[in-house]
Design a protein around this nucleic acid. Structure first.
Lengths: 349, 349
DNA sequence: TTGTACGCGTTATCAC
DNA sequence: GTGATAACGCGTACAA
């Protein structure tokens, strides 16, 4: 009982040549019925699994993967993604994997389009993108399929069957996670503000999903009595973003909880002591300013979306598909990590 | 500017043969000074990275990895490890990786020893074990080194430099995570019981580390005023374990919080309503009974030690070391996952 | 001391 | 239709 049969083994057992076996296995035709039967008889008896390493060696191709994501200058949320890219580059450069990073301004559709155009023109084997702009991203997906470029997304979703691989978090559910945390901290009743803080509302669908999940939790728990208000805060023309936040806090009555659906919880935490010092804040993402206020106990919890892991898993999935024919997973949902002062370091590594 | 130089390329550039280049690279000697210089000159100019795939193909070995872990019959905590094993087996069987699972009774040192002996005798390429019994595990490590078997541990640590790879959680810190959660739920003061519930105290060092971290948090926060009692609960001779628990609860005054350092929080949650209904329980591990009480809001939080991920990462690390010469990491600390009713499903997958 | 030739398993090409 | 053969890159045995 051998374990790993090779084409050569099969050829001997069937009394034909390697070439014929290959033609049978790959259904290339040009095989006589007699030979076909011989080979199939052997294939039925044993389990043939082609050696992926040999295949890969023969292939001997360089693969180019391009990744299209926002500039971390504009938002440090994206910083960890860069680390993941370097890490994957180091791990797989020996295997002929080239990764090309392309940045766009998260506030500019044009910038996204321009970068995407350039990427598609360069004809990489795959593009991994953050589909911040729905329509434009759909268009990119379409053109990738036409150009035979594998297309994957992370962080956001576009519901498009053309996407070969997508990874992210269940945002609705993460809203529920936040709601449950407030429930545990505040008890059976209270007032909570949902704040969508985003300079230009690129993350509109993101934020809405979280809001929906959040409200869903309280709606389904009839024993709870919470007053929930929703506020959209974006940059006003003549004043700084920070002042906009401050003006907002001035304008409202003290509240028990503040749920910030973006990574901008620090903007609120910064002013909380002055205006509504007893408010519990829950926000998203381990950007350094958020961690600072977490450690000062001004932010109670953060929810971690692990952008680094998203990039790492996206890239390794694509790479193993290219190198070893591992089937591409279609959709991956990452866990919703709850972070407090004590467990954040391990998530940063 | 080529990217991936092969030995053949270098040979041509240096005006020597492949064999000579190989001898230089692997320092096998038998090279004339002149040739040595030629080759080194080329090697200085370019960056040579041997193709790991070709190396691996040539190698063409089957690797046997044995994994020694407790029987999940005795404790369902180990169940997810089995899943990880199957998953890795499926992913890498094509690569000539064989994984052999060997179980021992977590309550029996003898059973551990016996299983370990058999494994070592079978001379696998690597052994991954749960070092539940310190001295015996040290002995296994020693004999593995002698027999040239790579030795790795997960879930528990033994401080032994012979271990080639170890993975687990920072238990001290996870105690602090629990403490912080109690702090947030209970406020500035209260009474908390630390319960070490373990049928035979195999996990003694485990539990003590968590206790130390837990107390450390409250000791360092001078503004907090918590009364903390420690109780060891193990099976008494004549009655069931469950009755032991019940007797304990009967014997104490109502308390604000209960910190269970093992996966046995469900045993407490089961009786909480009768004896101390307002106690907040925090425990460890996503075993199904714990999740049941989590969903009933009888357990506030669970801390997830992700045994499945521990096994998965251990195995893939070893495999990539064997197949592709990836350097073995030495020590990996997994994040300390905080689990509530809303985010547990994603951690189970 | 050096170069050559072969094998690992798969695939593609090329005579027959 | 078919089988033989070369090639991918590395390691190594062996002949020169």
């Amino acid at each position: 009982m051998k374990e790993n049969y090779t084409i050569k083994d099969i050829a001997e057992m069937a009394g034909v040549s390697k070439g014929t076996v290959d033609r049978v296995i790959h259904k290339r035709g040009k095989v006589s019925p007699a030979a076909l039967e011989q080979v199939n008889k052997v294939l039925d008896k044993i389990e043939y699994k082609p050696n992926p390493i040999a295949k890969s060696l023969k292939n001997n191709k360089n693969y180019n993967i391009s990744i299209l994501l926002p500039d971390a200058e504009a938002d440090p949320y994206w910083e960890p993604c860069y680390e993941a890219i370097s890490q994957v580059e180091n791990e797989f450069s020996h295997f002929g994997i080239k990764i090309h990073k392309s940045l766009f301004k998260p506030s500019s559709t044009k910038s996204f389009k321009k970068a995407a155009d350039a990427l598609i023109d360069s004809k990489p084997d795959a593009i991994l993108m953050v589909p911040l702009f729905y329509i434009e991203a759909e268009n990119v997906a379409k053109r990738c399929v036409e150009a035979d470029i594998k297309i994957a997304t992370f962080n956001n979703y576009i519901k498009d069957h053309k996407i070969n691989f997508e990874i992210g978090q269940d945002l609705f559910q993460s809203g529920r996670v936040a709601a449950k945390l407030f429930n545990m901290l505040l008890g059976k009743s209270g007032s909570i503000a949902i704040l969508h803080i985003d300079e230009a509302f690129q993350n509109a669908s993101h934020m809405q999903e979280k809001e929906r999940g959040f409200k869903d939790f309280f709606n389904l728990n009839k024993k709870l009595d919470f007053k929930i208000d929703v506020h959209n805060l974006k940059k006003e023309s003549k004043i700084t973003f920070d002042q906009t936040i401050e003006n907002f806090l001035k304008s409202i009555d003290p509240i028990d909880g503040i749920f910030v659906t973006t990574s901008k919880a620090y903007l609120i935490a910064n002013h909380i002591a002055t205006y509504t010092p007893d408010s519990v804040i829950i926000g998203y993402d381990l950007v350094s300013e958020n961690i600072k206020y977490l450690e000062e106990n001004k932010i109670a919890f953060l929810i971690h979306q692990d952008p680094k892991k998203q990039v790492y898993l996206s890239l390794t999935n694509l790479i193993e598909f290219f190198l070893f024919d591992k089937p591409l997973q279609e959709s991956v949902l990452l866990p919703i990590d709850i972070i407090n002062t004590e467990n954040f370091p391990q998530y940063l590594n």
